[in-house]
Design a protein around this nucleic acid. Structure first.
Lengths: 237, 237
DNA sequence: TTCTGTATTTTGGAATACCAAATATTATAA
DNA sequence: TTATAATATTTGGTATTCCAAAATACAGAA
């Protein structure tokens, strides 16, 4: 091994991100479209149309759909025709319960594993949520909220947990975004976030678990309220 | 709608299972091969060779590899070359912690949601584990053990939870199988299974959560012991 | 012998073509 | 007009082919 130390360091740095394929690129774009509701839930997806829209062939597009399927954003019918997922409230609640268990575990682990820097970062993100709401608008504040939860999971040091959590986040992104736009949802969220941060800083695993679980439970309530609001508004047509 | 009721019923029945594609078939076979260790961990996988071995083209085989990637059985290197996963003990423990949280949640939910028939089935599977060990051999007993855990998760009535649990089961299958062959691991397992069944029958959510969590914790210990045993045996070459 | 630059081979990514199943459309009969 | 049969079209699955990147083998120079 005649290589100097920085050689390996550089190699690691440059190759850490697996080379982006057309499929992954398409998956990223599609995910964004679905999350923002640009592609409506339940809408049927035609491989050929989408492939043309992206300027790629069906082969990588198909792979992109597969990726989004595992994330729960695309569902395949019995005849293998893909559609944009249109989850029922029951399914969403199922997802939220799993997400709750994952985040509770993350909080627990983070109390033992997180570095002080990671905890500081979590707290910093939390304070910037409020700032973003004042200056950058609702969408940015919501993105910060998501990053808050991601940071907690990352602080657990459990990579598999982070991956699984990310797929549930993707599925839940849209409904959580809808819910975040209700003014009524925001106040509770803010104080709950503080509880979470306090528990983590105290490295009190039980408290962190409890705070995260109850946070997800209010999310359940808020989302249910948001969805019924939208449903009733739709009936006013 | 002039169709008689049974027409739709029949159509539904026959089409309920999405048509099996070559990709899924290949994924099933490959999964079996990897789980049983026929394809050694870390071994590099050549798409062309495998496709020829299965008698299919690379297109569906590629999709199969993608499926197994999301299950964590296949990993892609930085240059997108697929290999059979070769998880470190740390990674395995990460997986087990997530699996523990999932099963704890499942037990909790099952206490509220499970039908009596489902609980009876769980108990029945548990008793048949012992029988299988006496008559059908180790592998069959192990399969029963897996079915025991699957049945609990199914009884939670949370489909997403069941899916996520299944992928972790796939990742962990091999190491859990190795661990199950240690005689020392078995006695503790048996009494813990009884604790779980009792808690579920009493529909005591807290007890079920606790029993499942501690069961996964002993799994952690057993697997660690099994792996170090194998490692030291390997050094004897 | 060891290192480096070059040629060869291997490998996965992507485009294209074709097929069978599913769907939509049209025609026909009651 | 409505229901059914026949036809045409659309759609996803699969095989084949080509291509660029990567790994390997090799040859020459230090």
């Amino acid at each position: 091994m005649s290589e100097s130390a920085w050689t390996n360091e550089l190699r690691e740095f440059v190759e850490l991100k697996p080379r982006q394929s057309l499929a992954m690129e398409a998956a990223d774009n599609l995910r964004e479209f679905i999350m923002l509701g640009r592609l409506a839930p339940g809408m049927s997806v035609r491989e050929r149309d989408l492939a043309e829209a992206f300027g790629i062939s069906r082969t990588p597009l198909k792979e992109a759909l597969r990726i989004l399927e595992t994330e729960g954003l695309i569902v395949y019918g019995p005849t293998r025709r893909p559609r944009v997922a249109d989850p029922s409230l029951d399914e969403i609640n199922d997802w939220l319960r799993v997400q709750g268990a994952l985040e509770a575990l993350a909080g627990e682990l983070a109390c033992a594993e997180a570095t002080d820097a990671q905890l500081a970062k979590i707290e910093e993100i939390n304070t910037s949520i409020k700032e973003a709401r004042d200056t950058d608008g609702q969408l940015e504040a919501f993105r910060m909220d998501m990053r808050f939860h991601e940071a907690i999971v990352a602080a657990s040091g459990n990579e598999a947990l982070a991956e699984t959590h990310a797929t549930y986040n993707a599925r839940l992104w849209r409904v959580r975004f809808l819910s975040s736009q209700r003014i009524a949802s925001r106040d509770a969220t803010r104080s709950e976030h503080l509880d979470i941060v306090e528990a983590l800083k105290a490295r009190d695993a039980a408290a962190a678990r409890k705070a995260l679980k109850s946070h997800l439970r209010t999310a359940e309530t808020n989302i249910a309220a948001a969805i019924t609001e939208i449903e009733t508004a739709k009936e006013a047509d």
